[in-house]
Design a protein around this nucleic acid. Structure first.
Length: 202
DNA sequence: ACCGCGATAGCCT
DNA sequence: GGCTATCGCGGTA
């Protein structure tokens, strides 16, 4: 399990560091694992796409200002959730959106959460789409507001670990779904593992 | 494979 | 009242 100190760096650095790491989800006595393959960073001070741009503080976005290593989960479009990992020091509103993961184990279990079917009964389209988006992975790993504020360094329910996996090449691209964010929409703050099949958009 | 569009509710002015 | 860090469907190819 990665320690608290791991998360205290800036969001951009953490976004790249997290690629290739394993997202671990404990639920119902199971230990679900998935490789992180796509992330985005958000930095309140300079980023019009960040919920906390310009020092804004509301109840919903308070986790962003926390010290690194906690979860920030918010509800979006009236239907979905997005899972972020907060980075940096207390008072700096920075975080990393986890955009896509590649499942490693327990495929039937996550398939049932996502589609109410066993994995081998999925269409190829469903297999490709099982976790290749920020809200899709929240469905597959049952992440919602109840995980908001969770401390990842305490190792309950959600944490990050690493293994021998090596990331060959990281692609830097524009972020998704933030057209309103003026100059910030062109920042190359989306990162993904080149060639990975679970990346949401190439 | 790609495009357009509707769904839906919490959040904030 | 007007958004939104998305997804899935149905249409067209």
């Amino acid at each position: 399990m990665l320690e608290k100190s791991y998360y205290l760096k800036g969001a951009k650095e953490l976004s790249k560091d997290l690629l290739g790491k394993i997202l671990v989800r404990k639920i119902d006595g199971k230990i679900l694992k998935a490789r992180i393959v796509e992330t985005e960073c958000y930095i309140g001070n300079i980023d019009k796409a960040c919920h906390a741009y310009g020092g804004k503080i509301t109840e919903r976005i308070k986790p962003l200002y926390n010290e690194g290593g906690i979860a920030y989960v918010y509800f979006i479009y009236g239907l979905y959730h997005c899972f972020n990992i907060i980075s940096g020091i207390e008072g700096e509103a920075e975080g990393v959106l986890i955009r896509a993961v590649e499942p490693i184990n327990e495929l039937d279990f996550i398939s049932n959460l996502r589609y109410k079917k066993e994995y081998h009964k999925l269409t190829n389209y469903q297999k490709k789409n099982i976790t290749n988006g920020p809200s899709k992975l929240c469905m597959a790993y049952d992440i919602s507001k109840k995980e908001n504020w969770l401390k990842l360094y305490e190792g309950n329910f959600i944490y990050i670990e690493e293994d021998e996996f090596i990331v060959n090449k990281i692609v830097e691209a524009k972020r998704i779904g933030i057209d309103y964010a003026e100059e910030a929409k062109d920042f190359l703050w989306r990162f993904y593992i080149e060639g990975n099949n679970y990346v949401s958009m190439k």
